[in-house]
Amino acid sequence: MTAETLLTWARGSAFDWAIGIFVFGMVLRLIEVLSLGKKPDLAEGRGSGVKGGLKTIVTRSIPRASVFAREPVRITNGYVFHVGFLLVLLFYGPHIEFIENLTGLSWPALPGGIIAGLGMITMASLVLALIFRLRNPVLRHISTVNDYLAWAVTLLPVLTGYLAYSHAVLPYTAMLALHILSIELLLVVAPFTKLTHMFSFALSRWYQGYQAGYRGIES
């Protein structure tokens, strides 16, 4: 197989399958959660559950001061990774073109050099996250194969993307094919690992926030 045929396959049927599994998997996960239902709270409430739920979806993005003080580097690193990953994903020119082809939506891109820098920062934060996971006693104790798998499939698209951009290893066509395949791997794996949190975080924040809002307690 040549690099060109690999790229054609990666962009064609492989991509369709990956997106299909991703959407099916995520919807299934959502149904698995919602179908379990929740009993209504019969206690006399003090406030609005809906307001509390919506508020908590936003406010949980900000850490509590006392916990931040205990783990400033780990928490900051988490922000760096998420912001870096999203900027690279959404503001690299070819990514925007790709999304435009699929959806018709488009927006201004960031310069390639800045994206490359962000990609390196994102990878550095992932490496640091791995070091924490291997060395911190709590993280080591609670981590499973799942955590390392999720880590690897998250790193690969950033790494292959950076290598394709910098033309450092392999001809561009082959690297680009690997880049797209690594994204497809991420899409396929995501619904069956902790990466579901990319959507379910809103649900879990909502549930705690809803109860807190209804009961008039902090969340």
Partner: peptide, 26 residues
């Protein structure tokens, strides 16, 4: 196990921050 519990387990990323809030761990 209800919908909230299922959403909690679905979302946990094993970040370990809960330990830092627990006096039995600290």
């Amino acid at each position: 196990i209800d919908a909230p519990v299922a959403s909690f387990f679905s979302s946990c990323v094993h970040c370990g921050m809960c330990a830092e809030a627990c006096l039995f761990y600290t």
